[in-house]
Measured scan of single mutants.
Amino acid sequence: MAEQVALSRTQVCGILREELFQGDAFHQSDTHIFIIMGASGDLAKKKIYPTIWWLFRDGLLPENTFIVGYARSRLTVADIRKQSEPFFKATPEEKLKLEDFFARNSYVAGQYDDAASYQRLNSHMNALHLGSQANRLFYLALPPTVYEAVTKNIHESCMSQIGWNRIIVEKPFGRDLQSSDRLSNHISSLFREDQIYRIDHYLGKEMVQNLMVLRFANRIFGPIWNRDNIACVILTFKEPFGTEGRGGYFDEFGIIRDVMQNHLLQMLCLVAMEKPASTNSDDVRDEKVKVLKCISEVQANNVVLGQYVGNPDGEGEATKGYLDDPTVPRGSTTATFAAVVLYVENERWDGVPFILRCGKALNERKAEVRLQFHDVAGDIFHQQCKRNELVIRVQPNEAVYTKMMTKKPGMFFNPEESELDLTYGNRYKNVKLPDAYERLILDVFCGSQMHFVRSDELREAWRIFTPLLHQIELEKPKPIPYIYGSRGPTEADELMKRVGFQYEGTYKWVNP
């Protein structure tokens, strides 16, 4: 592979701008107003304001973009700056750019259920340069409990009458099928589907988006991507930290609602779906819905739930269990780990287990898709061969690698495990991989909904998990304890083995 010439960040961002501006969906010269509902909250200060700053800094926003914060707290732009700027990672050389960014910011205080507050917000936006005809993007960085009041008031008082209007809704989209349907029906009564952007930030990850290209742009994968060759698929999300004093919020939802029903299920769809007619948003989402419709409700015998306990040999936070978090209700049975087996009941995947695993306070930070292939028929190497695996590593250190057998150097035919490896950090030294939120917010500006969740996708996802969630809430089974920093409950490994996964433990990928 030829040595790549190092590029400056300015040059890299210039390439990104060229890609972005050559499309006809990006209205570079139009006025846009980006409204952050819930501007005083954690999500706004840690993710949304920093993301908008990065896009502005790199010249990736339309030229005439204004940012308006809205929340109940009586704040000023200076207050917003004070709480969000520490997350910007701005350099001293960017000081003038930073001043320009905050000059485009404003803030309006108001209630979430008060019509007069929204009329005041609308008047404020109209007073901005060309504000009355601007395109408006409303980001709901809010708890779902206020979605209905907020969307109703936005629709009645704050819509642009000339430009387009788009609304970005953060997960969780309800707690179960019934609450999700209620919320979807409410929002759909106010906005068209092409105006609604239900954001799952995992769909903005580079390697998640790469799944489609790997599958449908490489001839070698087509013939082997089926039940005849693939023994099982494992989708993993692991965090090495616990709730760390923020367990009160987590306890309301648990690990299945927080990660599995959305992030992991979306990745499953991209692995299992048929080739779409095109890369058009609805063509892709149509195929994802077909996959979900082929999955039956989760069966309790295919589920393992766990909850982390303190590690007596650990240090600091590792010595504390979930129930030691003062914000967690006493005696909570909320799971911090889950392993679930699903089956896609169609011709391509009949009988292939899709194993979804996620948890907190585990032994490493990792998100990946792992396809394990069947054993080689007619073994001539005296059971020395391990199964081939194709691994798409989402985070950290984005990579695609194939675990395969090669001859060990020497005189004899002794096979050993090795890999074919594409590590993004080595291959793409001159490429700026956008943060997931950067990519998705740019998608909203461009009107691309491919990486957002459609209402029928959402409904099918909740259909699969709601009976299990209701059973857990009714019966309150005690989750299996696992030690902070471990791989999780051993019962999860036993479940995976029972459905056909072979864990060798003899080879570990190392970032080159």
Results as ranks from 00 to 15, higher is better:
8 S>F: 05
9 R>I: 15
9 R>Q: 09
10 T>Y: 15
11 Q>W: 08
15 I>P: 06
17 R>P: 15
17 R>H: 15
19 E>M: 15
20 L>C: 06
21 F>C: 11
23 G>K: 15
24 D>G: 14
25 A>G: 15
26 F>D: 15
27 H>F: 11
27 H>W: 11
27 H>R: 15
30 D>V: 09
30 D>S: 14
30 D>H: 11
32 H>A: 07
32 H>V: 08
33 I>F: 10
33 I>H: 08
33 I>G: 03
36 I>P: 01
37 M>F: 12
38 G>D: 01
41 G>W: 04
43 L>D: 02
45 K>A: 07
46 K>P: 03
47 K>W: 06
49 Y>H: 00
49 Y>L: 14
50 P>Y: 00
51 T>W: 03
52 I>D: 01
54 W>C: 06
54 W>A: 06
57 R>Y: 00
58 D>E: 12
58 D>I: 09
58 D>P: 03
59 G>N: 12
60 L>W: 07
61 L>A: 01
62 P>I: 02
64 N>W: 06
65 T>A: 09
67 I>M: 07
68 V>Y: 05
76 T>R: 12
76 T>E: 13
80 I>Y: 05
82 K>S: 10
82 K>L: 12
83 Q>V: 12
86 P>W: 06
86 P>M: 09
87 F>C: 07
89 K>I: 08
91 T>E: 13
91 T>F: 08
96 L>W: 11
98 L>C: 07
101 F>L: 01
102 F>R: 06
103 A>F: 10
106 S>W: 07
106 S>N: 08
109 A>C: 12
110 G>F: 03
111 Q>L: 13
113 D>E: 10
116 A>H: 13
119 Q>T: 14
120 R>H: 12
122 N>W: 08
124 H>I: 12
125 M>F: 14
128 L>N: 10
132 S>W: 12
133 Q>Y: 12
134 A>P: 09
134 A>N: 14
135 N>L: 05
137 L>F: 11
138 F>R: 02
139 Y>H: 03
143 P>M: 01
144 P>K: 01
145 T>Q: 06
145 T>C: 05
148 E>Q: 13
149 A>L: 13
149 A>V: 14
149 A>I: 14
150 V>P: 05
152 K>E: 13
153 N>T: 09
153 N>A: 11
157 S>D: 15
157 S>F: 12
158 C>F: 07
159 M>P: 11
161 Q>W: 12
164 W>S: 07
164 W>V: 09
165 N>W: 05
166 R>T: 00
166 R>H: 08
167 I>E: 00
167 I>Y: 09
167 I>R: 02
170 E>V: 01
171 K>H: 05
174 G>D: 00
175 R>C: 11
177 L>C: 08
178 Q>H: 15
182 R>F: 10
185 N>Y: 13
186 H>S: 14
187 I>R: 02
187 I>D: 00
188 S>Y: 05
188 S>E: 11
189 S>V: 08
190 L>I: 13
191 F>R: 00
192 R>W: 10
192 R>P: 13
193 E>D: 02
194 D>Q: 13
194 D>L: 06
196 I>T: 11
197 Y>F: 13
198 R>N: 00
198 R>K: 03
199 I>S: 03
199 I>K: 00
200 D>L: 03
200 D>R: 02
202 Y>W: 02
205 K>R: 02
206 E>V: 07
208 V>G: 01
208 V>I: 11
209 Q>S: 10
211 L>N: 00
212 M>V: 03
212 M>Q: 03
213 V>M: 11
213 V>E: 03
215 R>K: 07
216 F>W: 06
218 N>E: 07
219 R>S: 09
221 F>W: 15
222 G>D: 15
223 P>Y: 07
223 P>H: 09
225 W>P: 02
225 W>V: 05
226 N>K: 06
226 N>Q: 08
226 N>M: 06
231 A>D: 07
233 V>M: 06
236 T>G: 02
242 G>W: 03
245 G>N: 12
246 R>S: 00
246 R>A: 03
248 G>Q: 06
250 F>S: 05
251 D>N: 13
251 D>L: 04
255 I>S: 01
